[in-house]
């Protein structure tokens, strides 16, 4: 047993068996971890000004908006379709473009396909950094570059999809069993042919499934991108919330919920078929 600093402070218990052997049991780390979590919780509470009594006294304000949304303003429905389609189109185009570009990126990151450590490392780092940027922030930056509108939202979704699918795919490709590749080479296939017939069939179902999943999530993201001016149904939410027109907000949310639900079911159906 290797002694760590923790073991020096909290001595392990020693048991002596009837045959004279000694067994050491480490002191449990649970109390220590719990203490840290508690400490961080208290500090975080200080920093953020959490005050639970406020929930009791003013909690009903949360319900106020929620109840104001019911019944939703059904007359507003016709105003929702346009921005909603914008949202779907943005996430569709961004997802497809991102998924396509993720292929070369994933291949360049995979150490078993491109045997160049430097290149692999560079593209892996690039994908990681890209992934750290929250979609809303890249959308915000995109609105400054491409101007307000759907183009900015599409770019933000495209960047996120690229990083998400790129990372998942290179992880998958690096874990592919290269046995079939070797077998194909032994049959006289060239490396490209062996790749096409050994790696592609293995990776393709996962790729399609991950892409569908990314698209599903992107619809949710796209719904709020309008908040920074990047087009779609978020613009409407921003506007109506600003005017405190909560029944219309309720309508937007209701339709959004239905659309997301339907798209998720469809995508789930195809993902089940792929595995």
């Amino acid at each position: 047993m290797r002694e760590t600093v923790y073991d020096k402070i909290f001595k392990p218990k020693t048991y002596t068996l009837s045959n004279g052997k000694e067994v050491k049991q480490r002191a449990s780390r649970a109390p220590f971890i719990l203490l840290i979590v508690l400490f961080v919780t208290v500090v975080s509470g200080e920093v953020t000004g959490v005050d639970l009594s406020m929930l009791r006294t003013r909690g009903h304000q949360f319900i106020v908006i929620l109840t104001a949304m019911f019944p939703p303003n059904f007359n507003f429905m016709n105003n929702v379709w346009g921005p909603l389609f914008d949202t779907i189109q943005m996430s569709l185009l961004g997802s497809i473009a991102g998924a396509l570009l993720a292929i070369p990126f994933a291949l360049l990151s995979s150490s078993n396909i491109i045997r160049n450590r430097l290149l692999n490392g560079f593209f892996k780092l690039f994908l990681s950094i890209l992934r750290t940027l929250p979609t809303l922030i890249s959308a915000l930056i995109a609105t400054f570059i491409f101007g307000l509108g759907t183009m900015a939202g599409t770019v933000a979704i495209f960047l996120f999809t690229l990083s998400y699918i790129g990372k998942l795919m290179y992880e998958h490709i690096e874990n592919v069993d290269m046995g079939a590749f070797e077998a194909h080479e032994s049959m006289g296939l060239s490396k490209v042919e062996a790749f096409r017939y050994a790696i592609v069939p293995d990776v393709l179902p996962t790729y399609l499934s991950v892409s569908l999943y990314a698209f599903e999530g992107n619809i949710r993201f796209a719904a709020i991108l309008g908040y920074v001016g990047a087009g779609g149904v978020g613009l409407l939410l921003d506007e109506r919330l600003g005017w405190r027109d909560y029944p219309s907000v309720g309508m937007v949310l209701l339709i959004l919920m239905l659309v997301v639900f339907v798209i998720e079911r469809i995508s789930e159906y195809f993902r089940m078929k792929l595995t």
């Binding site: 069993d177 046995g179 079939a180 070797e182 077998a183 017939y197 050994a198 069939p201 293995d202 179902p205």
Partner: peptide
């Protein structure tokens, strides 16, 4: 081969 080396997902 010992481990067959087939493309298992097809």
């Amino acid at each position: 081969f010992q481990s067959f080396n087939l493309v298992t997902r097809t």
